[in-house]
Lab assay of single mutants.
Amino acid sequence: EPLWIRPDAPSRCTWQLGRPASESPHHHTAPAKSPKILPDILKKIGDTPMVRINKIGKKFGLKCELLAKCEFFNAGGSVKDRISLRMIEDAERDGTLKPGDTIIEPTSGNTGIGLALAAAVRGYRCIIVMPEKMSSEKVDVLRALGAEIVRTPTNARFDSPESHVGVAWRLKNEIPNSHILDQYRNASNPLAHYDTTADEILQQCDGKLDMLVASVGTGGTITGIARKLKEKCPGCRIIGVDPEGSILAEPEELNQTEQTTYEVEGIGYDFIPTVLDRTVVDKWFKSNDEEAFTFARMLIAQEGLLCGGSAGSTVAVAVKAAQELQEGQRCVVILPDSVRNYMTKFLSDRWMLQKGFLKEEDLTEKKPWWWHLRVQELGLSAPLTVLPTITCGHTIEILREKGFDQAPVVDEAGVILGMVTLGNMLSSLLAGKVQPSDQVGKVIYKQFKQIRLTDTLGRLSHILEMDHFALVVHEQIQYHSTGKSSQRQMVFGVVTAIDLLNFVAAQERDQK
């Protein structure tokens, strides 16, 4: 057995438009009618409502009807409940999964919650491996369901041993009777949507819809739904939504950006999952974080739909894509998950301010006199920076000697690579993860907040409520011999709460 199987392995699926269902090699399930009293909570997966979006479509000038398939009504709160249950049931049916076995899954959280929910009911041990950027709410729900959680670096490539995929496979090879159901490759993922989600949409719309818009992560949702719609409703256009920084969209030119990270969760990847059939997507749109969270908040405030950030991405694209539809036509959007997962993220004004998705003037509360002053007023001194090749031991000596707790790590040209902190280095040394002679590049981390000289002290204040420091950066445009230009970030300084307090105190003292 291989040590790991690539999540982007070539698909062996034989589905073709027009091929009889009787030739399918898979076990198919028909939607079942729910009894009045459910035998367990797993029976509350599927049969989610279709809700008309009344205000947002009109606000953006849509002539067509805009409908939302509300997947956050599933038992675990997301569309991923469907595939989690289906993968477990299919693994039980073919004898792969037996009582007492362990389920391991690399996930952005929602599939993990679905699997942990099913594992709690069915009696399996469950280990979820997820990147650090995923919300604390997801972690809390997983723990409450009895799952064990392993976190991995957000910026690790999918084929790196440190990625959530790599760590999951390492655990599988170490733990007896453990299984990775593997949402990236498992046919049960798109089949769950082909058999149930798509049929529900067709039934709820009486077979009449002209466009379907869905955000894409593993691709199982859009693949399964689109294949069924292509068979039953061939005139329906399928629109895929991919965040900026991901590479799922086609044509490839759409993916060209210097951005590699994004805040919206559960969609987009740096590889093409095996289950994603991009041939059934008629057109791709890219979405960005700001519009995703703005539209998610709009869905909550104006439509009462308590959905997550990827739902915002989907609707932001839908109001663009559906401009081509006329009166009497219908566009369906998939709202994948609930706001429950993001209470401390985009639902929080403070978080939105820190990330730059909300401006101070958007909030009406009274601010102190210094709130709208610029960061450049602080008069920061030149920063202490270190090269990635310097040793951890030497870096600790320098920081202690100069009285700093942290320093930016830059390359020879001064471009920011990340940050090192005294606390992080000492804990890594004590844990045996690094040696004093190791290069400081081994303990770089990139989960820090950046701020510009033109940003306000109010925004800085919000950042420092949650973080010990902020890195002050400025952009530099560099022209190359080819005539092309590129933008790079340079370090201007490091600012802490002490710097802000000293500035405010000094100004008030001078005024007296």
Rank of each mutant, 00 (worst) to 15 (best):
I238Q: 05
I238A: 02
I238K: 04
I239Q: 04
V241T: 11
V241Q: 08
P243T: 01
P243S: 03
G245W: 04
S246H: 01
I247L: 13
A249D: 00
A249V: 02
A249H: 04
E250D: 11
P251H: 04
L254C: 03
L254P: 03
L254K: 03
N255Y: 05
Q256M: 09
Q256I: 12
Q256G: 13
T257V: 10
T257F: 09
E258Y: 07
T261S: 13
T261D: 04
Y262M: 01
V264A: 04
E265A: 01
E265Y: 00
G266K: 01
G268R: 00
D270H: 04
F271P: 00
I272Y: 07
T274G: 02
L276P: 01
V280Y: 11
V280N: 06
D282P: 08
W284N: 00
N288R: 15
D289Q: 01
E290G: 14
A292I: 04
F293W: 02
F295D: 04
F295R: 06
R297T: 02
R297C: 00
L299N: 03
L299F: 04
Q302I: 06
Q302G: 04
Q302A: 04
G304K: 01
G304I: 00
G304N: 00
G304Y: 00
L305N: 01
L306S: 01
L306I: 02
G309I: 00
G309W: 01
G309H: 00
S310F: 00
G312E: 00
G312R: 05
S313V: 08
S313K: 07
V315T: 07
A316P: 13
A316Q: 13
K320R: 05
K320Q: 14
A321G: 14
A321E: 05
A321K: 05
A322Y: 01
Q323F: 15
L325W: 01
L325R: 01
Q326C: 11
E327D: 11
Q329E: 11
V333T: 14
I334T: 11
L335F: 10
L335V: 12
P336H: 04
D337Q: 02
S338Q: 08
V339T: 09
V339A: 09
N341K: 05
Y342H: 05
M343K: 06
T344M: 04
K345N: 02
F346M: 06
S348A: 10
D349G: 05
D349H: 07
M352H: 01
L353H: 04
F357E: 02
L358M: 12
E361H: 07
L363D: 10
L363A: 06
K367M: 14
P368S: 12
W371D: 09
R374G: 12
R374K: 14
R374N: 15
E377S: 13
L378K: 03
L378F: 15
L380S: 12
L380N: 05
S381M: 13
T385R: 12
I390P: 07
I390L: 14
T391M: 15
C392V: 15
G393I: 14
T395I: 12
I398H: 06
L399Y: 14
R400A: 09
E401M: 10
F404Y: 08
F404H: 07
A407V: 15
P408S: 06
V409D: 03
V410Y: 14
D411N: 13
E412T: 13
A413L: 15
I416E: 03
T421G: 03
G423Y: 04
G423H: 07
N424H: 13
L426F: 14
S427C: 11
S427G: 15
G432W: 06
K433I: 06
V434S: 03
P436T: 12
S437D: 04
Q439Y: 15
G441W: 05
K446R: 15
K446V: 14
Q447S: 10
F448C: 15
K449I: 07
I451S: 05
I451G: 08
L453I: 14
L453S: 06
L453Q: 12
T454I: 09
T454E: 10
D455T: 13
T456N: 14
I463A: 04
H468F: 12
F469V: 09
A470T: 15
L471N: 13
V472Q: 15
V472P: 06
V473E: 13
V473G: 13
I477T: 12
I477N: 15
H480I: 11
S481T: 15
S481F: 15
G483Q: 12
G483L: 12
Q487F: 15
R488Y: 13
Q489L: 13
G493H: 07
V494C: 11
T496R: 03
T496A: 15
T496D: 03
I498C: 07
D499V: 01
L500H: 11
L500I: 13
V504G: 14
A506D: 13
Q507C: 13
Q507K: 15
Q507D: 13
E508L: 13
Q511T: 14
K512N: 13
